[in-house]
């Protein structure tokens, strides 16, 4: 088979391709901002006005360490009451799993076809080669 002769890309095309991939990165960085809030953190007791170490369930040793870090009970309460919510949306989980599996499946399939071209050009047609 004859070797593939690639096109020579002009400078303008090279610049365009470099910018294209950059724009793509920025778009993907900003997309989550336009989607539903990503952070699963919820403040459960934001309305509560005042806290004591006892009401926060903090032991004496923990209280000492909070104070060494410069926190009083009000400041500590904001952190202590900030909880994560790990509720799973099954539909989104299935979609995400399919996207990741589909991505790898597509990539491996296309790569295999491209790799056959590389090997054929490098080593020649396998049907005419003697077994190694």
């Amino acid at each position: 088979m004859s070797n593939y002769i690639p096109k020579i890309q002009p400078k303008r095309g090279q610049l365009f391709d470099s910018l294209f991939i950059l724009v793509l990165v920025y778009v993907s960085l900003y997309i989550p901002l336009f989607l539903e809030s990503d952070t699963a953190s919820v403040e459960e007791t934001a309305i509560v006005q005042s806290h004591s170490w006892e009401s926060l369930g903090v032991s004496t040793v923990e209280q000492e360490q909070w104070q060494k870090l410069g926190y009083d009970e009000q400041a500590a309460a904001e952190i202590i009451n900030d909880k994560f919510d790990y509720t799973i949306d099954p539909l989104m989980l299935i979609i995400t799993a399919l996207v990741i599996i589909g991505y790898f499946f597509f990539m491996l399939r296309v790569s295999k076809a491209q790799y056959r071209e590389v090997i054929a050009e490098k080593f020649g047609d396998s049907s005419r080669e003697t077994k190694q």
Binding site: I31, L35, D38, A40, Y86, I88, D89, T96, V99, I100
Partner: peptide
């Protein structure tokens, strides 16, 4: 996915 589901899909 548990913490950054939307980012995960966006990056994919």
């Amino acid at each position: 996915f548990l913490g950054y589901g939307a980012s995960l899909l966006s990056i994919m």
